Simulated scan of single mutants.
Amino acid sequence: MNGLCTGRVAVVTGAGRGLGRAHALALAAEGAAVVVNDLGVGVDGTGSGAGPAQQVVEEIRARGGRAVAHGGDIATTEGAASLVRMALESYGRLDALVNNAGFLRDRMLVNLDEDDWDAVMRVHLKGHFLPLKHAAAHWRGEAKAGRTPTARVVNTSSGAGLLGSVGQGNYSAAKAGIVGLTLVAAAELARYGVQVNAVAPAARTRMTEATFAETMAAPGDGGFDAMAPENVSPLVVWLASPASAGVTGRVFEAEGGRITVMEGWRPGPTVDKGARWTPAQAGETALQLLAEAEVPRPVYGAG
């Protein structure tokens, strides 16, 4: 196989269904050996099963690719460590990590239980941090041994993390945290040959097809299926490949045939008095600055 990822080894979390499955298949199609991680849980994170991960492995192998299944919980230290270990023991190297695993427990804030907050934070935010930590430790070791890698990390944020989403306070907070983690990791790991970016995809998955049923529906006329998860994967593959050299610490929205570079917090209108404000003066100045500032994009589901 000759492709952007020929000879590389990629790990994809949450790869049994939806976006993760699409990413794993696309990486394999471009020549990567893939470690397919999935717990096989329900859309709310309950239950488990080895079936989804193994099915994706079989799909990849049927197409002539290389893949192994990993059923560990990547939001635990041992699960994340074993994920990296499986790549090294199966294929002798690790070149790319695609953090994708997650589930939803949507509630309005006043109805959001602490357990639902913790569970969503755990799978999305901790489930990004731990695989990243263990992969980064391996790559740092390689760099210190004089074998600086061409390593890539692709994290998965969301429009909910960039703008907020009504009824998804836990999910929005976790996905916003992933952006912050991405920026820090990109800065810290550059010296070891590691690039870290994030995507904020919009696609039809188990997490979106019910909540946004009308928006996510496939066209009935056989036209371009803008919400197919496979539309997001080409960007993920490129970010995971050597071809993306020099691109790090960036966030991309990907939806249908559209790719957007997202521009985060930047200083807007400002006033420096050179001395302490009174509360009334601070308020009056804030209102003046807000009148000059760009109006923020609305939170998803607001209004």
Rank of each mutant, 00 (worst) to 15 (best):
D95Q: 02
A101Y: 11
G20W: 03
I178S: 07
G102N: 02
R140P: 01
L239Q: 13
D118I: 14
V68S: 03
E209I: 10
K273W: 00
P131M: 07
V98W: 02
S157K: 13
S90P: 12
P242W: 00
V56L: 08
G303I: 05
T205R: 04
T77V: 15
V236G: 03
E142L: 15
A151L: 10
G177Q: 03
F252A: 06
P219K: 00
P201M: 13
G303M: 06
V36A: 02
A24Q: 01
L97V: 09
G18Y: 04
A87M: 08
G47D: 14
A67D: 03
W238Q: 10
T150S: 14
V57I: 02
A173C: 00
G301E: 04
L183Q: 15
Q195N: 13
A32F: 02
D116M: 06
A62T: 11
Y192R: 02
T76W: 03
R107G: 04
G193C: 13
P131C: 10
N111I: 08
R191E: 15
G72P: 13
T46N: 09
P229V: 02
Q288H: 12
L88K: 03
G180Y: 01
A226N: 00
A218G: 01
E142H: 01
R21Q: 06
A217K: 15
V68A: 13
A135W: 01
D38P: 10
V154E: 02
A53H: 03
